[in-house]
Amino acid sequence: MSNGSERGPPIVSLSAAFAASPSPMLVADARAPDHPILWANDAFLRQTGYPADEVLGRNCRFLQGPDTDRSSVEEIRQAIAAGRAVSVELLNYRKDGTPFWNSFTLTPVNDEQGLAFFVGAQVDTTLAHTNAERTIALGTALDRKTAMIHEIDHRAKNNLQVISSLLLLKARRTVGGETREALEGMAERIGALSVAHRLLCAGEDGSHFELTEFVSELVSEFEAGMADDRVRIDSDVDTVTLPASMAAPLALMLHELVANALRHAFPGGRHGRISIFAKRAEVGLSIAISDDGIGFDVAAQNETGFGRSLVEMVSRQLRGTVRWLPMGSGTRVEIAIPLRVA
């Protein structure tokens, strides 16, 4: 006499469980022509919107419609012909014509004589498909927006280069004096802005830039424009990621300070060094530009000068502070800029 563990599952209980299952299920006759549906649970009827009398006796292809993928249908047909299980995702249609994505699994069931039934289970994946389509659409829109921003930055950079070239051309045709110096200075400042745009265009998203690379690029521009190597430019810069909105003000500020040092700190062929220091600090970003040149009277106001006013104006724009410090030999300018916590 066998014990209970050797007995098969209670068929009536399994049938009741399938009928009460929240997952849409059906059973099709594997031996009858066209494999008609013999049974479908209430969840299947609710999902498809068909009453039982319009489901039983039909092949489940009645759920297919104009946009149902024919390759998925062919995959099901081949699995049925071979008597093997298959899982596909295809677009089906409810009785009212509403489409829904259906993750469909078909499993063959054998009896003593061989293949007898196909058991089908369905999962409505419409929401997942809708979310995926929205994600793809948003990604496409973001890619287009990023490409547009890069294109705008690229055009802005080119326009700045053209303006700088025009100012330099005008300066060369202007008799020496304050007007020529002003034109040359403006051309150089616009060139610094062009460098900032070039770095932003080269970035992955154009919304941030690396300070180390930024300073290195500006130094390279200065070195390329120097007639000799009597003045050396050194830099000690932390790797800090900054928002793109800071690129133009920083470019103007750093350019102005280094350009002024090159122009005024080393007269008469004097040799020297300019140092650029930028570190992450408690205040946010600490920047110092120093030189070992002849220095200047930081208390004196140059009525015709523009560079100092520009540096202080840009510093205020960044909500920072500037200190002009005389040294035993040369000048040091310290700038503190608060940074937003990301």
Rank of each mutant, 00 (worst) to 15 (best):
L211S: 07
R155H: 05
T239W: 14
K170L: 15
F266T: 01
K279M: 03
A52L: 09
L160T: 00
M226A: 11
G305K: 07
E54P: 00
G97D: 14
Q317F: 01
E89Q: 13
R319D: 11
L91R: 07
A202F: 07
T140M: 08
G305D: 14
P108I: 01
T321R: 05
G225D: 15
R172M: 15
A30C: 10
L168Q: 09
E6R: 07
A141D: 09
W324M: 06
I11K: 03
M1E: 09
D229V: 00
A16E: 13
T125W: 00
I163W: 03
V215P: 04
S15E: 10
G328C: 03
M1K: 06
F62D: 04
G328L: 06
A28P: 00
K95N: 06
S286A: 10
G139Q: 11
L166D: 15
D42F: 02
L262I: 04
M327I: 02
F118M: 07
P267D: 15
F62Q: 04
G293M: 01
L168N: 10
A171M: 13
Y50T: 02
D153S: 03
F214H: 04
T174V: 06
I136H: 08
F100Q: 11
S21E: 12
A147C: 13
A251W: 02
P36A: 09
D205K: 06
I76W: 01
I276C: 07
A116W: 04
R280I: 05
I149A: 13
A182F: 08
A224F: 14
L168A: 12
K279V: 08
E133I: 06
R232D: 15
Q47I: 01
R316M: 06
G320N: 02
S87T: 11
R77I: 10
G185R: 07
T179V: 06
A16W: 04
P249F: 07
S5I: 12
S23L: 11
R31C: 11
L318V: 00
I11Y: 03
A85L: 12
V283T: 00
L142H: 11
L56I: 12
L14H: 02
T107Q: 07
A171N: 15
A248L: 15
M253D: 02
A19D: 15
V314N: 00
L142S: 08
M1D: 09
V73K: 02
F214Y: 13
I274M: 11
A52P: 00
V109K: 02
A137K: 08
L211F: 14
G295W: 05
I287P: 00
A244N: 03
R31I: 07
L339W: 02
L199D: 07
I289C: 04
F277N: 06
A299P: 04
T212F: 09
G139L: 08
G97C: 12
Q113A: 13
E204K: 06
H154E: 13
E210T: 01
F222Y: 09
G191D: 08
Q47K: 05
R332S: 15
T135Q: 14
M25P: 01
A182L: 10
E151M: 09
V195E: 15
V283S: 07
A116P: 05
L318F: 02
A85Y: 08
N92Y: 10
V123C: 03
A40E: 08
E213G: 10
N59F: 14
A261C: 14
V341T: 04
S220D: 15
H255P: 01
F118E: 11
D297I: 03
A116H: 08
